[in-house]
Design a protein around this nucleic acid. Structure first.
Lengths: 241, 241
DNA sequence: CTGTTCCGTAACAATCTGTAACGTTCATGC
DNA sequence: GCATGAACGTTACAGATTGTTACGGAACAG
């Protein structure tokens, strides 16, 4: 998964396929679609798919059956989509081995967030189902440790530094892409899953807030430096642990 | 078991038989019922049964005796149902060769989950030799132990922490899916089996109540953390015991 | 029937986040 | 150097989200 993640959307509703497909492509994913189990199999047979987005209600074979069958022979991550009111099926979906599920109608941000979460989980840990101790992954830089499993930051002296959700997301976006200039737009997309509004300064403010917490001297930052006219860059060497 | 799994419910209480039977049929199982050991034998003699759901309290021959006798001549998977307070019997039940047990009153979701767990275990390990992996009885995290059999929580120092049913269900939903962001909707599904109403804050309140009981400092939680705009996450490593 | 416990709703407090405003820094032209 | 405008840093504030408490109905035991 060094490249763009490759997603496969399986839904019998053409409108939903197109909608979801466009949304995901816009956010940098490579997307295939299939209208039923057969088309899905055809694609799975020839392409390496990083994540399957599977509607639970399909004509003929249900998403649940597909999920169970796939699990028997593959470990491809699965995100289930369910219509409202199919409460029980959702749970069953998880038990069938789906990695997550989302109730329709969902909002695009949540879909993107869950896709990212699954891909991150899968790419870091070997696929683990159930309550196995997860292979917690940490990012270490300049003595600091960003604990991705616990969503928290440890200072070099071991003290837990409180980060808000937004600060954590942004710092993670940085730490996963060190020594690269990231534009405000990229950062917004990575950390918030949204586009910039006109005169959007929210990243600037959030960077300022993070600096206050992690920089030795926030007035002359050394970790998150400003690249005037271009954005910001996270300078430390980052080592996955 | 390529087909619908075939279950046999043995309980002397007609109401429970019907209730359980309907629930299971609704979820795609083929279900038979028997009110006593004799009826059970009759069915076992003619049908291939994938899983036996056996009440421990039966008139005449007890479920325990039945279990031991069956084990002597058959490897049919057995799920024992016990009334509350029969703790000892539960352990004995497992020792008699039951594959799992569930305390009454149980919630439908949990029954379904355990049935699936057993069937999965048995079907995957069908040809495997040796004793079946024992049912998970406890989840351990950060020194705490969530005892699934007794539905109770033990603090690191061994003290039993009183949890209400709702708190227990929610904490279990968390502990079974550690280090994953769970939306309020998912949590409602997992812990309550219902959908969110508009402006539903019940999960927030329940999380607050649990934090008060298990967090060292409830004002800056470390076990159940908030992911703003997304839900909550259970951060500790969880180890099944 | 009475008392207790539990849980969802409502209300209010605390926290977080984006916007706006203003100050500072930087590059540029004079 | 100095003025100027753009880009950036920082603070303040308001709306949104979450935390917490109180309360009342429901379920249950006695």
């Amino acid at each position: 998964m060094n490249d763009r993640p490759h997603l496969l959307v399986v839904d019998d509703d053409r409108e939903i396929r197109d909608l979801v497909s466009r949304l995901l492509q816009k956010h940098g994913y490579k997307v295939e679609t299939a209208r039923d189990a057969q088309a899905m199999e055809a694609i799975l047979a020839v392409s390496r798919i990083d994540l399957l987005i599977l509607d639970i209600m399909l004509p003929g074979k249900s998403g649940l059956d597909i999920c169970r069958e796939l699990r028997a022979r593959s470990s491809v991550p699965i995100l289930m989509l369910t219509a409202v009111g199919e409460e029980t099926d959702r749970i069953v979906g998880l038990e069938m081995g789906a990695d997550d599920y989302l109730a329709k109608p969902f909002n695009p941000r949540e879909l993107l967030a869950r896709i990212r979460a699954i891909l991150r989980r899968v790419s870091t840990a070997a696929s683990a189902l159930g309550p196995r101790p997860a292979a917690t992954k940490k990012l270490r830089f300049a003595g600091w440790q960003l604990d991705l499993g616990r969503r928290r930051l440890e200072a070099p002296d071991g003290v837990i530094v409180d980060l808000t959700t937004g600060e954590y997301e942004l710092l993670m976006a940085f730490a996963e892409r060190p020594q690269r200039v990231l534009s405000r737009n990229q950062l917004l997309d990575l950390a918030r899953g949204r586009d910039a509004t006109p005169f959007d300064r929210s990243i600037d403010v959030q960077v300022s807030r993070i600096r206050r917490k992690i920089e030795a001297d926030p007035r002359s930052p050394s970790m998150i430096i400003t690249v005037r006219g271009d954005g910001y860059m996270f300078t430390p060497d980052v080592e996955p642990v």
